[in-house]
């Protein structure tokens, strides 16, 4: 029956099979097969994570990075610090004892991209904020072996002599807002000024930063110099806020590690 119906078209099928179809069938089939086999695993694992409400603990008091801290984060990325320092404390007893409460998902909610890292040539930095003084951080970055003789960290003295470029900060904050960080219009528009203000305490700009980003914001001469805003200011401001964006981990009970 089927054959009868198809008979008028048999010429077409034969032609098709002889030329195009035959040559293409296998390679297209292979292509579709590979995509079908390879796509599913990623989909199954990643897609549910985007129903974020259940994946990430809620913290209504979660802070965003100030422009200066974000600029510092960009320098951290630029210098490849993530190649040797993780920012992810695992739920293991020794890690909690060494570095502090284990990292929660909410803490890197605004981290585009995350900097969890994959290797600890140096220690984890997820909670390094306020563990050391600004002076220590500046000295350690400029010449690590003057403070830790055994250290193999590269020296970053040039950050002290490099002015921080702030003109692009509004654009950066706007891009971050596009991908989901809740910056306000005001915060975006004043990003360059706020970056300066955060490193000059007791100035009008500094008060504006406090107003826009909250009382808890660190406003200090991070690199110890009042005359100019350097990349060192930004990087130290970033390091000092690590682990300080959310109070949730410290408030939650520390469970025993596995």
């Amino acid at each position: 029956m089927l054959r009868k119906i198809l008979k008028p078209f048999s010429k077409f099928f034969e032609f098709h099979a002889r030329t195009h179809y035959r040559a293409e069938r296998h390679s297209m089939g292979l292509t579709i097969g590979i995509i079908a086999a390879a796509a599913v695993g990623g989909f199954v694992e990643i897609a549910p994570l985007f129903s974020i409400d259940d994946t990430v603990e809620a913290d209504p008091n979660m802070r965003v990075y100030t422009p200066l801290e974000q600029a510092g984060r960009d320098i951290y990325i630029r210098e490849g610090c993530y190649a040797c320092h993780s920012q992810m404390i695992r739920t293991l007893r020794d890690e909690v004892d060494r570095y502090g409460p284990y990292s929660l998902a909410v803490e890197s909610q605004y981290d585009h991209p995350m900097l969890w890292g994959s290797k600890r040539t140096g220690p984890d930095l997820a909670r390094v904020g306020e563990k050391f003084s600004d002076e220590w951080q500046v000295q350690h970055l400029a010449d690590p072996r003057s403070l830790v003789p055994e250290s193999v960290m590269p020296q970053y003295a040039f950050l002290l002599n490099t002015s921080l470029e702030t003109a692009s900060l509004p654009g950066r904050l706007a891009a971050l807002r596009t991908v989901g960080v809740p910056y306000t219009d005001e915060q975006v528009a004043n990003a360059a000024d706020d970056a300066r203000g955060q490193a000059i305490p007791d100035s009008d700009r500094a008060y504006a930063v406090e107003e826009r980003y909250g009382e808890a914001t660190n406003i200090r001469f991070f690199d110890g110099r009042r005359d100019r805003l350097t990349e060192m200011d930004a990087l130290v401001a970033y390091l000092q806020i690590l682990g300080g964006l959310s109070d949730l981990p410290r408030n939650m009970q520390i469970p025993e590690g596995d």
């Binding site: 694992e45 990643i46 994570l49 985007f50 974020i52 994946t55 990430v56 960009d74 998902a105 909410v106 803490e107 890197s108 909610q109 605004y110 981290d111 585009h112 991209p113 995350m114 969890w116 692009s168 654009g171 950066r172 891009a175 971050l176 596009t178 991908v179 989901g180 960080v181």
Partner: peptide
């Protein structure tokens, strides 16, 4: 400028 920000953050970014 070269700088861009990943569309993903945190857990989703780590998994991706």
């Amino acid at each position: 400028a070269a700088k861009s920000y990943s569309a993903f953050s945190g857990v989703q970014d780590a998994m991706t």
